[in-house]
């Protein structure tokens, strides 16, 4: 099972500012292992979905071009303090992870 995400959501006026830090190696599949000289197989997040109180607000596709332990920041208008933010991702090996946080 993958490591948990860190999610921080705060209200900035009437806009919720959500910051997510995912734990993932994000291997491109183009890198060689320095010790063995073998290619490191691709292992990266494919899709990311963010929901607020169960309603999807953001859908994203990613590939190996996103940095290791991806950071994602986005803003949602109309959300309120106390609303639940749910972020989930699925990687190219079928592994997945969902975490939630409350908007502060």
């Amino acid at each position: 099972m993958a490591e948990p995400m860190k999610i921080r959501a705060t209200m900035q006026g009437d806009v919720a500012d959500v910051k997510v830090l995912m734990n993932h190696p994000m291997e491109t599949g183009l890198r060689k292992d320095a010790k063995t000289g073998q290619m490191v197989p691709a292992h990266h997040i494919n899709t990311v979905t963010a929901k607020i109180n169960g309603n999807t607000v953001l859908e994203g596709n990613m590939a190996g071009g996103v940095s290791k332990n991806p950071y994602l920041g986005f803003k949602v208008k109309g959300a309120k303090s106390g609303d639940t933010v749910e972020v989930s991702w699925v990687d190219n090996k079928g592994d997945k992870r969902t975490d939630t946080a409350k908007i502060a």
Binding site: M26, L58, G60, A63, G65, V66, F74, K75, V76, K77
Partner: peptide
């Protein structure tokens, strides 16, 4: 100039603003 130029794409709905912040290679 990346080997595969497309890094990520995002779509917004339900009040999400036209803003995205991330880190790329």
């Amino acid at each position: 100039k990346n080997a595969s130029p497309l890094v990520a794409d995002f779509s917004f709905q339900g009040g999400a603003q036209g803003f995205i912040s991330t880190r790329i290679k």
